[in-house]
Design a protein around this nucleic acid. Sequence first.
DNA 1: CAAATCCCGAGTGTTTCGCTAGGAAAATAG
DNA 2: CTATTTTCCTAGCGAAACACTCGGGATTTG
Lengths: 158, 158
Amino acid sequence: MRLSTKGRYAVTAMIDLALHNDVGPVALTDIADTQKISVSYLEQLFARLRKNGLVTGMRGPGGGYRLARAADEITVAEIIAAVDEQIDMTRCAGKQDCQDGEKCLTHELWVDLSRQLYDFLHGITLGQVLQWPAVKQVAERQEARHPRGFQSKSENVA
Amino acid sequence: MRLSTKGRYAVTAMIDLALHNDVGPVALTDIADTQKISVSYLEQLFARLRKNGLVTGMRGPGGGYRLARAADEITVAEIIAAVDEQIDMTRCAGKQDCQDGEKCLTHELWVDLSRQLYDFLHGITLGQVLQWPAVKQVAERQEARHPRGFQSKSENVA
DNA sequence: CAAATCCCGAGTGTTTCGCTAGGAAAATAG
DNA sequence: CTATTTTCCTAGCGAAACACTCGGGATTTG
C-alpha cells in the first residue's frame, strides 16, 4: 500500500462525486476546475476507478461520473488501492526466498504493518468523511460559489 | 505523510537495531547484508534518522548505530516521517488560498485524513512490533544463522 | 600507525508523477 | 442529420523521487 498525492487526488474527486451523487453525474471538467489539475490526468485516475468498479461513466452532454455504489459502501482504502500501481512493495515480490532461501524480516514485517494500515483505511468510508465538520464546511462554501447540478442543464454560471 | 519502500527500509533497519540494542552497536554493513541493499543508501537513511534523534552513531572499529531511545519510546510514525522528504503534500503548500482565496476541499480533507493516519502509526512502537509473532520468528532464525553481537568481536562467521 | 566505521557530497539510471497531445466513440441539442 | 459535449484510449514528456554508486573525508579502536 503506497500513499502519495495520487491517492489524495482520487479520494478528493470521489468526495466531489459523493457530494453530488443524488443530483446527477459530475463532469471531469468541474472536478479539474475545483482541484486545479488537468482533465487528462483526472481521466487516467478515473480509468482506474472505473476498472475497479468504484465509478460509472456516462458519455455525452450532461454526462460525467457517478459513484457505482453508495458512499457508505466505498472505503478510502479501495480508492487508494485502485489508483496505485501496487507493484512489488516487498523486495522478494511474492517469492518468499529473498534471504537465504527463506522469508526475510522485511517481508513479514511489512506484510503485517501494511495489513494493519489497510484495515485502518478500510474502516473509513466515503460516507463517514462527508460527515467530518471541516469537509462539510468547505463543501457548503463550494456549493454556494459554484452551484452544480441543482439547476437544470440549461443555465450557465459563468 | 508519504509511504513507500523508503520508509520500509528505515523501519526494518530500526527493528534490526532494536533486536541488538542490549548487545552493542550494529554496523551498516550487517544491515545492508541482511536487507540486501547498498551501504551508501543506508547511510543516507541513517543520516536522517540521526538528525531526527532516533539513532546515535559510534565511529571506529566495533562501532555502528544504536537506538537513541528505548524501543518502546520510538514509534513507526516517527521513523517514516524522518526519512520522508515531507515536501508540500498539499497543493497550496501551507498557504490556504488555493481556491478562490480560501482553503480548498483538498486541503482540509487530506490534513484530516493524514492526521488520522499519523495518529494510527504513532500508536505503534518499535517495542510492540518486536512482539509480533512473525517478526520474532524471523528474527530468531536470522540470529541463528548470522549471530551478531552475542560473541565478542574476535570471531568470524564466514 | 592502520583498519574499521561513520560522515558527507556529487553524480547516475530507472521509475513514478503530473501533465500534454491527439484522437475515437457515444450521447445529447438543435 | 449535424454539431457539440462528454467519456474513453494511447502515446509521450519534463521533473521529481527512488535506489544506488563513487570518492573522499573524519574519528575511534587495536
